[in-house]
């Protein structure tokens, strides 16, 4: 099954993302911050990572940088969730190796559409 790692410090966002993706038949693993996500990603290869940017312990951009440095995540789609005001964040994310971004606020359909496109 296609597995997705969803990283967000907000439980409601995490639930929404996770519920939406599970409903579409993906396996979803949740993490509350970058450190937790990195540990999970190291232990198990996931097919896609979707992460919030502002998080305690390790933010989304650092997480993307760390992940992109791992051999098994060289080509994995890494998406970040940003707000409309985050143009510089997008750039920072791209520089760290992000595949792309999903702009908050988004609804489940937009999320699914994007994920589907990326995973093909």
């Amino acid at each position: 099954m296609t597995s997705i790692l969803a990283v967000d410090d907000s439980a409601s966002m995490r639930q929404m993302v996770s519920f939406t993706l599970k409903g579409a038949g993906y396996e979803v693993i949740e993490a509350a911050d970058g450190v937790e996500a990195l540990n999970i990603a190291k232990g198990k290869s996931v097919n896609l990572v979707i992460t919030d940017v502002n998080m305690p312990n390790m933010d989304g951009i650092s997480l993307i940088r760390e992940l992109r440095g791992l051999p098994s995540y060289k080509f994995t789609p890494l998406l970040m969730l940003t707000t409309e005001s985050g143009a510089d964040k997008k750039q920072a994310g791209k520089a760290a190796g992000a595949t792309g971004w999903i702009v908050k606020p988004f609804n489940p359909d937009q999320l699914l559409a994007t994920i589907k496109k990326v995973l093909g």
Binding site: D9, N54, P105
Partner: peptide
């Protein structure tokens, strides 16, 4: 940072869940 993150999460969540006033 913690304060900002909290505000940021509330904004993101309220936007996503359709509470545009709060957002």
């Amino acid at each position: 940072n913690a304060i900002f993150r909290a505000a940021h999460s509330i904004k993101g969540g309220s936007g996503t869940f359709g509470f545009s006033d709060i957002s």
